[in-house]
Structure formats: C-alpha cells, structure tokens
Simulated assay, not measured.
Amino acid sequence: MNEVYARIQHARTADEVVGRIEDLILEGVLRPGDRLPGERDLSSRLDVSRPILRDALKQLETRGLVVSRHGDGTRIADLIGEVFTPPVMELVATHGKAIADYLEYRREIEGVAAGFAAARATDDDRALVSDILARMRQAHRHADFEREAALDVEFHNTVGECAHNIILLHTLRSCYRLLADGVFFNRGLIYALPDARDTLLQQHVAIGEAVLAGDPHKAARAARDHIDFVERAMNEAERTQNWQKISRLRSLQRAAGRKPAQGGER
C-alpha cells in the first residue's frame, strides 16, 4: 500500500499531490468508494506537509473527484455512477433495442479488452487473474449464486484493468455498473437455466487462461463467445419465463372453471 502513495520526489506542492491522486484514479488504481489514508498518514507517505495535503484534497473535492464526510474520511467519488444517470438508466432499461445494443457493444469491446489484456498483462496482473479464477471455481463448487454473480463483474473488471488502456478501463466500468445493478436483465434467470452456471464458469476460465497464456486472439475469441452465449441464454430465459407465466395463467383459469358456481341453480 505504501507504494501506491509513494513520496513525491520533486516539487512538493498541492498541484503535485493533485496530479498524483488524479493519476491513481485515471489508471484505475483507486476505485469509486476507496478511502484515502488519514491526513497524517497520507502526508507522511507523500512526504508533503499537512497544509499542502489539505489544499490538494480541497481542490480534488471541488472538482468532484473525492468526497469528504465527517467520520468517514475522504473517499474517491462515484464517478462511474454519473456516466449513466438514473433517468437514462430507466430509459434504456425499458427499451428492447437498448438491451441488444448493450450486448453488441459488450461483445466487441470485451473482445478488444481481452486481446489487449493477453498482450499486456504483467506478472501482478496475471496473479490477480489467477486468484479470481480460483475464487470463481470455489464459489461454483459451493453453489453460491450471489458470490458467483459478484465475481462475474469483478472478473470482467479485472480483465479490463489488465488491458492497460485508460479509456477502455473506465468505459467498461460504467458498462459493468449496469450489469451489477441488473439494469438490463436479471442474471438470476440465466443462472437458473440447465447447465448455464457450468457453461459460464468454463467461459470465464477460457478467457482467463488465454490472458494468462498471453494469447490475444484466443482471449478475444473467448470473450466474444461468452457474450454470444449470454445473449442466447438471456433470450431463452425470457422465453422460458413467458412460458411459465402462460402455463400458470392456464392452470389458474382451469382451476377456476372446475369450482362449483356459488349461488347457482337449485
């Protein structure tokens, strides 16, 4: 953690501190909600005076990059949440074409990200990918759906980070926020399909292993195949859900028809 907030070597000014925090946010090292170290600790790590640090944090807060609350310290602002405002999310969630466009976008952009990740991943990146794959396998063995769903988003975010492209990183994070919040579809419906959980794990492993192997073409293909499956599974889950609704309505109607009429003829 000390390496994250490495001491500033040259001019120790508020602008230098602002630039350091900006870089950490832009590169995805600091994520929305991450709390900065306390004032005394952070000023010591950066090797700047506390007045300089306070000035820098004030500038960052004025620009909306950090949020300070009494008793909670200073945290990185939820910048991603502002990409898709609630009215926009509500609008796209209620239009079928937006769902198709979302998956089309993910298919292409994740293929690019996975290819870059395979070509650019560092040893630390590969260690992160290996760790998350191990946790995904464990969650799958325990049939822990909530954990699997959370790790799904974490895995894709990690691959995006391994691509080492700032624009891709933040674009994908906003994209995955929609996924995590269930804006477009309920992933629980997909997980309920026969063999879907097994297939999803295999596909995530295929992407991860291609990244670990440094094979950009294989990684890109595995990422696109994954989204193709998600789209098919989503359509099947929606169709199955509609069938279940119709079957339920029929059963209710037949049951009502078999009941003796109240107050009937004598």
Rank of each mutant, 00 (worst) to 15 (best):
E3H: 09
Y5R: 01
R7I: 10
A11Y: 14
R12P: 00
D15V: 08
D15F: 13
V17G: 05
G19N: 07
R20Q: 10
I21V: 14
I21C: 03
E22W: 09
D23S: 09
I25P: 02
I25L: 07
V29Q: 11
L30N: 00
G33N: 12
D34P: 05
R35W: 10
R35N: 09
P37H: 15
D41R: 15
R45V: 13
L46Q: 09
D47I: 07
D47Q: 10
S49C: 08
S49I: 02
P51H: 10
P51E: 10
R54H: 09
K58V: 15
L60Q: 07
L60H: 12
V66A: 05
V66M: 06
S68I: 03
H70T: 15
H70D: 11
G71N: 07
L79A: 04
G81I: 04
E82D: 07
F84G: 04
T85E: 03
V88Q: 06
M89Q: 07
M89C: 08
E90R: 08
A93Y: 01
A93M: 02
G96T: 07
G96E: 15
K97Y: 03
I99A: 06
E104F: 04
Y105S: 08
R107F: 06
E110Y: 04
G111T: 01
A114D: 01
D123E: 06
R126W: 04
V129H: 00
S130E: 11
A134G: 14
A139G: 09
A139K: 02
D144I: 14
D144C: 09
F145R: 13
E146R: 11
R147M: 09
A150T: 11
A150P: 01
V159P: 05
V159I: 13
E161Q: 14
C162N: 03
H164S: 12
I167C: 11
L168T: 08
L172Q: 04
S174V: 15
R177Y: 12
L178Q: 02
L179N: 05
F184I: 10
F185Q: 04
I190V: 13
I190R: 04
Y191C: 08
Y191L: 14
L193Q: 02
D195P: 03
T199C: 06
T199K: 10
L200T: 09
Q202V: 15
V205E: 15
A210N: 07
V211F: 03
D215P: 02
A219W: 05
A220K: 00
A220T: 01
H226R: 03
I227M: 05
D228F: 05
D228Q: 06
V230E: 01
R232G: 12
R232A: 14
M234H: 03
M234G: 04
N235K: 07
W243V: 12
W243R: 11
W243M: 11
I246S: 06
R248A: 12
R248S: 14
L249Q: 03
R250M: 13
R250D: 14
S251H: 14
S251Y: 10
L252G: 13
R254D: 15
A256G: 06
A256F: 07
A256K: 01
A256H: 03
R258P: 00
P260I: 01
P260F: 00
E265H: 03
